[in-house]
């Protein structure tokens, strides 16, 4: 099954390179490339791509804000953040906003394509320093919080192993589960972060209006 992909990247050279890499894969179809978040927001609802490669630092509306807006659509696309540097703060905020994964732009083309292919099942691997931030994020969770917002024991184990430098395969070996299961745990963690963030945002909004 062919995946439709949209690229949002303000740097012309990089945008063209990313499009070229995507086009090199037969199972991936690049349906659009935009320089700004605003342009992307006006086109994407009609194009309904499967995946969006979203640059984090965009002029005008930021990539993170764009993720927030895209995730409000009825059938939101999977979003992979692309970044020149692995800036942990911004990547973490993007994940909270609803991004499904992230990728360093200078990654080898194969990695980039694999990330697009696998985004639904867990996307690109989460690295140690992001995992560390996620651990911190869930650190103060309350026991009576909704299941949907809280990570499970197993997810916690996966996160702390990630933070200690373990790769997916090592985690699988350690916990006696498959790499696919690890990947699925990571995906769920990202989703829960997103849910938690949304709940918190609503709470903040209510506190402000009432």
């Amino acid at each position: 099954m062919t995946k439709s992909v949209v690229v949002v990247e303000d740097d012309k050279g990089l945008r063209e390179q990313l499009v070229a890499i995507l086009r090199s894969a037969p199972d991936i179809k690049c349906v659009g490339a935009f320089a700004t978040a605003e342009e992307a927001l006006s086109k994407i609802p009609a194009q309904k791509p499967d995946v969006v490669l979203m640059d984090i630092g965009l002029p005008g509306m930021s990539g993170i804000e764009c993720v927030v807006q895209l995730k409000k659509l009825n059938s939101p696309p999977q979003i992979i953040m692309v970044t020149v540097y692995e800036d942990s703060d911004r990547l973490f905020r993007a994940l909270k906003a609803g991004a499904n994964g992230y990728l360093v732009k200078s990654s080898p083309p194969e990695e980039l394509l694999d990330a697009v292919r696998d985004v639904e099942t867990g996307g690109a691997p989460m690295s140690s320093h992001i995992a560390c931030k996620v651990v911190e994020h869930f650190h103060g969770q309350k026991q009576d919080d909704c299941e949907k917002e809280n990570i499970s024991q197993r997810e916690q184990q996966v996160l702390s192993l990630l933070a200690s430098g373990f790769i997916y395969k090592e985690i699988g070996d350690q916990l006696g589960i498959s790499v696919e299961t690890v990947r699925s745990h990571v995906k769920n963690i990202c989703q829960k972060m997103h849910v938690r963030n949304r709940v918190e945002a609503v709470a903040r909004h209510q506190a402000k209006t009432h």
Partner: peptide, 12 residues
């Protein structure tokens, strides 16, 4: 961005 571009180009 430029170095990343070189990386992507050479990767291709």
């Amino acid at each position: 961005a430029r170095v990343t571009e070189i990386s992507l180009l050479s990767g291709m």
